[in-house]
Nucleic acid binder design. Sequence first.
DNA 1: CGACCATTTGATATGGATCAAGCGATGTGG
DNA 2: CCACATCGCTTGATCCATATCAAATGGTCG
Lengths: 232, 232
Amino acid sequence: MLIQTAERMSAAGQLSGHGLPFDLSSILVAPAGIGELMGASMSFTRNAEIYGEGEPADYLYKVLSGTVRTYKVLKDGRRQVGDFYLPGDLFGLETGDVHAFAAEAITNTKVLLIRRSAVAALASRDTAFARQLLMVTGREVDRVRDHVMLLIKTAQERVAAFLLEMADRIHTGKDREVELPMRRQDIADYLGLTIETVSRTLTQLESIDAIALPTSRRIVLRNRSVLRRLNG
Amino acid sequence: MLIQTAERMSAAGQLSGHGLPFDLSSILVAPAGIGELMGASMSFTRNAEIYGEGEPADYLYKVLSGTVRTYKVLKDGRRQVGDFYLPGDLFGLETGDVHAFAAEAITNTKVLLIRRSAVAALASRDTAFARQLLMVTGREVDRVRDHVMLLIKTAQERVAAFLLEMADRIHTGKDREVELPMRRQDIADYLGLTIETVSRTLTQLESIDAIALPTSRRIVLRNRSVLRRLNG
DNA sequence: CGACCATTTGATATGGATCAAGCGATGTGG
DNA sequence: CCACATCGCTTGATCCATATCAAATGGTCG
């Protein structure tokens, strides 16, 4: 990723510069926009790479708008999507000094960049910030563990769990409906299935009236309890 | 787990009581035994429960001797082993206030107990400690992510990766040989396979001279590069 | 020695993958 | 503004890796 091309703001400087206790929640949970006061923001078009696997992890990112996928590709081309990130979500936080997964924009996406060095500096100065950072990382552990639990389930269970999760995370007006930002291939690679199996499973869920598919991306959750029952 | 039955030591008291900078590495990487200076130690026999899923997470644990498995059981009985923990490894560190996975001793096991509240207190006082805690949690994220990558591979690839990992982590005298502490069922539930598939795959790896099986638990890595090549 | 438990091996079934086509929506150039 | 190319998705037919069901073998301990 070329940082030079970004519209840079005073961001990282402010982050590491002030001495006041810093509330991490402004990065983590504040509505998109507030965080913009302290970080360069950058835009990516559909399918653009935000960073590659193995690149130096100098920044962490907060989604301001759009959707992001992280993924890893095995030698033979199999791709595993690690997670999807929606507005307000933080991604790119790594243990090592390089990114273990690559990141791409699924739709046109705007992200806030936060210097990793600034985060580290602040954490070593501000205990409350450090605690929040630890919490965020801990939640990431939980999410990845949930992903492991997902991958041992049947196709029906995986797809049902995926739909419920997305319905929870994507806040549209009506809460019986989800507009999925990602393609079937992304879903398949997240769930460890093929695109055909995902498609067939959706059709099948439709046939038992658990969902409806007005368009391929728009999904109506007709019967959440049926979907929930499909979980181990 | 009933703490009352443990041989208690001054441990947690000391941990939270002193004001000196505390080196987390003594908990994390020091040889088993050193850590014992500050924590209750407790012993568990083969298959004994250390804590159950959903129990309050008041302690975190360091393996002094033996081996531990963490796991979760789905409604229908399918079991997923989260990870195996060997001497020196830390487990039971949670985001929430309850354990997301249960923990059991695989062999007779001795663990060091560390009060979570003491860890939290120390982290808020000692920046270096907090940083190390974050590192440990970050490494956990990496481990779980690796587990996800494992679960999308073929049976051969999973078993090969498992053997290589165990050979790296279990330090016996000779490094061509591993003595596995866990049963086939544990391996199967870790890899998301059945016990029969694990067994057959081992037999198959033996037939191509990648490994030898002097006994069912003892595995000789005859040809590491073949095993490594079996990875995506 | 005998009972039990762990592991292996064998026979068969099956869920999801693969291979292959068709269909619908979207966008582009004429 | 239409015709056609492209892309994303669905559907169909078949295959295969792993699960399931079943039995035999081996190892351990009272």
